[in-house]
């Protein structure tokens, strides 16, 4: 049985990575995986590498609504969720939805917001609904938060605690594009206008169908579940790690692996799927011991993965 909408998703991916987002194929693929698996994406990189462009291109090509929040320390939760204001004409309070009521929400420099605002946002992400003054408003479907944070600048920031990081399915950098691609980008100038002109390539209904397909059509076998669990166990007993991958982390790993299998046109998950998404999905969930804080989490997870035998019989 062919996977529903898989070809359409793949065409979208190819078009974006070839025409608009050169040199970002990896992060784009991870973003699509996040979207398909109904998760959220955290981009950790220095400014100016195209985080916003990526988010915008994705939103445009999917024909989704796009909202953006620029975080500062005086940002209030209501600036994101929206608030009730009194309508004089009607003589009642009217709810004015904030930017969160968009399909794709770009939260720029999330670590500049105060913890209070951060937690309000993250709660909304998790619950997919917003409660303001006793009324609950559901968020639109599909809903994807792309948060960015600058790992270099630390002054005046409120780094996301590990418990909050756990809510992001994927955490990845973008990295500098290859030299010739970067030169071409310089030559061509900003493509923001091109992106704004992108025609939607996939309807909302088709995307929902693709998400359903990832959820229902991809088989996750016992061997791979065992493999994921072994990775979680290994992360918990690693000498450098204080706390390893949580159960929610495990679920997320499995979902991301499923989405990866979907993109690979396979109706079942194989260990390679997990290997492909494990670092992006798992590394930010590790809490290292204080004495090893300087060690790269991605390196730790890669070493765990390398040491783990792949179930093959």
């Amino acid at each position: 049985m062919p996977l529903r909408q898989r070809d359409a998703v793949l065409t979208l991916l190819d078009t974006l990575s070839e025409r608009y987002l050169q040199g970002k194929a990896r992060s784009l693929k991870l973003a699509v995986i996040t979207l398909l698996a109904r998760g959220h994406l955290l981009l950790e990189d220095i400014p100016g590498l195209g985080k916003t462009t990526l988010a915008l291109a994705l939103a445009r090509s999917l024909g989704l609504s796009f909202g953006r929040v620029q975080c500062t320390s005086d940002l209030l939760p209501s600036d994101i969720t929206g608030l009730s204001i009194f309508d004089r004409e009607k003589g009642e309070f009217r709810f004015v939805p904030g930017p969160i009521f968009n399909n794709i929400l770009l939260v720029d420099e999330i670590n500049r917001a105060t913890p209070r605002t951060q937690s309000a946002l993250l709660e909304a992400m998790e619950e997919k609904r917003v409660t303001v003054e006793g009324t609950t408003y559901p968020l639109p479907e599909p809903f994807l938060v792309i948060a960015t944070q600058n790992p270099v600048e630390q002054v005046g920031t409120f780094p996301l605690p590990e418990s909050q990081l756990d809510r992001f399915m994927v955490s990845t950098g973008i990295g500098y594009p290859p030299a010739e691609v970067e030169q071409a980008i310089i030559r061509g100038g900003s493509i923001r206008d091109d992106i704004l002109a992108i025609k939607p390539q996939l309807t909302v209904a088709a995307l929902a169908e693709a998400q359903q397909s990832v959820l229902n059509d991809i088989y996750l076998g016992d061997k791979v579940v065992g493999y994921i669990h072994a990775l979680m166990e290994a992360s918990r007993v690693h000498p450098m790690v204080l706390s390893g991958i949580s159960t929610r982390g495990g679920i997320t790993l499995a979902e991301a692996a499923k989405a990866h299998a979907y993109l690979d046109n396979r109706d079942h998950v194989i260990p390679e799927d997990l290997q492909a998404v494990a670092v992006a999905t798992g590394a930010h969930r590790l809490v290292l011991r204080p004495e090893h804080e300087g060690v790269a989490k991605k390196g730790v997870l890669t070493s765990l993965l390398d040491a783990l035998p792949v179930p093959q019989v």
């Binding site: 194989i270 260990p271 390679e272 290997q275 035998p309 792949v310 179930p311 093959q312 019989v313």
Partner: peptide, 9 residues
């Protein structure tokens, strides 16, 4: 060896 690398990869 067995289990060293994903087969398809």
């Amino acid at each position: 060896h067995e289990g060293e690398k994903g087969l398809l990869a």
